[in-house]
Nucleic acid binder design. Structure first.
Lengths: 127, 127
DNA sequence: TCTCTGTTTAGACAGGCATCTAGACAGGGT
DNA sequence: ACCCTGTCTAGATGCCTGTCTAAACAGAGA
């Protein structure tokens, strides 16, 4: 097997996470906190927050590493390290197509995090 | 001057943060990332995430440290340390009234964070 | 005032993290 | 086949963090 590749999603939030009971509405149980905290932690670095944004807002929903790297004053390996962190937090998926590797956001978990922070469900609300 | 007290809010997000351009809509600028990343970082610990939830969901909008501490298998100083982290990230305010200290969530920044993660700002349905 | 309880600070330690350089793997072109 | 470019991994290093114990501060009550 290829030793170079191990992009297995380490966090599967769809399966066991109770999804989105707003943080300010009822107390977050320890298990949920243990699952979601790493995602917040991954976003807790300015570089990764920007990377996440660049990927999520990219045309076609995916961004090439070759476009991400030159946007920072950091070496390739460092960017790769941050992308790995986002990958392991379940925030993005990676796929190699030919020479370049493309990253794609996983909207589900972003929705979960946003739902957790939502203070005012406002109109449309839950379902 | 009182050496014990320095609960100055270190982050004033209202003033300079451009507030809530959704992360997936356009690229987060470096300055915004630098301001908001510490808030995500503060939520990136299971204990702090639970503390934040307990405070934000408390009756009357505030929670006493004396209620927070016994909810964890951690010493008082450790809880105090985490609360200080939340305070310095601008997520909560502290106020001493008599013997006890009460913590209160700052909804504005929670809204900012939620807005940043919101994939679809319009409440209704959506894919 | 003295004492008791609640809370924070100080200092120390182990572990984790961001960054770098050097090297390895993948794919395309010559 | 070879080399060149793009990307990731490995290992090292210095800083940051989570946790503890011990001690200091704040307020209430005797």
């Amino acid at each position: 097997m290829p030793k170079h590749q191990a992009p297995i999603p380490l966090v599967d939030l769809n399966a066991d996470a109770p999804c989105c009971p707003p943080l300010a509405q009822r107390r977050v149980p320890a298990e949920t906190a243990a699952v979601l905290a790493p995602a917040f932690k991954a976003l807790g670095d300015p570089v990764r927050l920007q990377l996440m944004s660049m990927i999520a807002s990219a045309d076609g929903g995916e961004a090439c590493v070759c476009d991400l790297t030159p946007a920072f004053d950091l070496t390739g390996p460092t960017i790769s390290h941050h992308l790995k962190t986002l990958r392991e937090a379940g925030l993005v998926d990676a796929e190699r197509r030919g020479t370049w590797v493309y990253y794609r956001a996983r909207p589900q978990i972003l929705r979960q995090l946003a739902g957790l922070l939502a203070s005012e469900p406002t109109a449309a609300t839950q379902r």
